[in-house]
């Protein structure tokens, strides 16, 4: 069959021209095209990578911020707690000191009141004594204004005296 018998001329031209075309295409077409495609792919990949990195950075920053915020919050809590404790301590101390002072003052007051009271009682006693003496004197003076009455009194007094 003629159909399946390779023609020498065509094989010759095919070999020659195909070798040339592969060479030319490699140099003038595939080289530039493939390198440009590769370049573009790389640039896209780079862009994607850097976007991914930026995203990661943002995420990192976010967690960092969160961490710092948490730390600040914790610190604040601690500080608040400390302040509260300090306040409580101060208040307590003040209170106890005040109590002590009040007690002391009370005691002093009580003592001085006692003293004053004693003094007043003493004075009152003296006054009462004086007054009593005065009254007694006046009463006696009145009662003993005449002889009869003196005699009666002496009688009374004598009655009271028990000779035993």
């Amino acid at each position: 069959m003629e159909l399946v018998k390779p023609d020498f001329g065509l094989v010759f031209w095919m070999t020659v021209s195909f070798l040339i075309v592969v060479f030319l295409m490699r140099k003038f077409a595939w080289g530039p095209i493939l390198s440009s495609l590769k370049e573009r792919e790389n640039s896209i990949q780079d862009a994607l990578n850097s976007a991914k990195k930026a995203k990661e950075d943002v995420a990192n920053m976010k967690t960092e911020n969160e961490r710092i915020l948490q730390e600040a919050r914790n610190e604040r809590d601690i500080m608040l707690k400390e302040a509260r404790e300090a306040k409580d301590a101060i208040v307590n101390e003040a209170r106890s000191r005040a109590t002590v002072e009040a007690d002391r003052l009370l005691n002093i007051a009580r003592e001085s009141i006692q003293n004053e009271k004693m003094a007043a009682i003493t004075e009152l006693k003296n006054q009462v004594a004086t007054l009593s003496i005065g009254i007694a004197e006046k009463v006696i003076r009145q009662q003993l204004a005449n002889d009869d009455k003196q005699k009666a009194l002496v009688q009374d007094l004598l009655k009271e005296v028990k000779l035993n």
Binding site: D7, G9, L10, F12, W13, V21, G31, P32, I33
Partner: peptide, 27 residues
């Protein structure tokens, strides 16, 4: 040895020329 530019050889050249034209243009 018959290395005539036959119809197929001519067609081969046309295909190649077309190919070079297209791809150098694209390149």
């Amino acid at each position: 040895y018959d290395i005539s530019i036959t119809k197929n050889v001519m067609s081969l050249f046309i295909s190649i020329a077309l190919m070079l034209l297209i791809f150098t243009n694209v390149a």
